[in-house]
């Protein structure tokens, strides 16, 4: 992958991950090499079973690689977790129904041992960051699905990690809400300058959001193409109708098709 930063934030070299199942071992990742620079927005796209989520989970030390190396901020993923290097957003908002929105955002801060005053301050700050000011006292069921997912992003941002890992965060939302949240996410990324790893099924979503699109292919899970986007960092929604956009989307589609050619 093209590097803007001489020292990548996330670096994978010859990464292998094989799951032992009952009948036969499954190669979820094979020989994955990837560098992600500071401030990049990297999307992982590919069909089910291509290892995109597994790769994201490996960065977050939720899976252990069986070969190769991976570093996050120059450390092992476990050490990076202890250093609060990343926030992780899952596909479902996963807010606790018995906590208010503020209470939910405050939860990781409580676990990490922030003081009460600092928790309150950070909750306010992150609520503003995701445009949910004034909703801190509400319970999750009082919010729409899109607002809940924004709250879950706020929760991942609350402890100020430099890296944001997102596993199909908008997959369960409808198209209109998804468009809106994509726009919001780009604004948030511009404001905070975070490095974002983003797993998605959607080609337009990947092209619209990313500086780099990593195309992956299944059996074994591997990277088939890394596309550097020529689009400017500032992207209005109607950029999706420009020839540049359509050209990148076409290239992603071709890449996905090539990965599937044998089956």
């Amino acid at each position: 992958m093209t590097m803007t930063d001489p020292s990548p934030v996330i670096s994978a070299k010859g990464l292998d991950l094989t799951f032992q199942t009952k009948d036969s071992p499954v190669q979820a990742l094979r020989d994955v090499n990837l560098d992600i620079g500071a401030g990049d927005f990297v999307s992982f796209i590919g069909p089910s079973g291509c290892g995109k989520t597994t790769f994201l989970r490996t960065i977050a030390a939720l899976e252990q690689p069986t070969g190769g190396t991976i570093t996050v901020n120059g450390m092992s993923p476990e050490a990076a977790r202890k250093a609060r290097a990343y926030g992780y957003v899952f596909q479902a908002a996963g807010l606790y129904p018995w906590r208010t929105i503020a209470g939910n955002i405050s939860l990781p801060l409580e676990i990490m041992g922030f003081s009460k005053a600092e928790r309150a301050e950070r909750v306010e700050k992150t609520l503003a960051l995701v445009d949910l000011e004034g909703f801190g006292g509400k319970y999750p069921w009082q919010l729409s699905g899109g607002m809940q997912q924004r709250a879950s992003i706020a929760r991942a941002l609350a402890f100020d990690a430099d890296i944001l890992l997102m596993d199909e965060p908008f997959g369960a939302l409808d198209e209109i809400v998804r468009d809106h949240l994509n726009e919001e996410l780009l604004k948030l990324w511009a404001r905070t300058g975070k490095t974002i790893g983003f797993v998605t099924h959607s080609i337009p979503e990947a092209v619209y959001l990313s500086t780099h699109i990593v195309v992956m292919s299944p059996r074994p899970g591997r990277i088939t193409d890394v596309i550097k986007s020529p689009l400017p960092r500032e992207r209005p929604l109607d950029i999706r109708d420009t020839p540049e956009f359509l050209e990148i989307a076409h290239r992603v589609r071709e890449g996905l098709r090539a990965g599937h050619a044998y089956d």
Binding site: R81, F90, G94
Partner: peptide, 12 residues
């Protein structure tokens, strides 16, 4: 769920 437990792990 496994997701909720993973979430806890990411927060250490």
């Amino acid at each position: 769920s496994a997701m909720q437990l993973d979430q806890m792990r990411t927060w250490g």
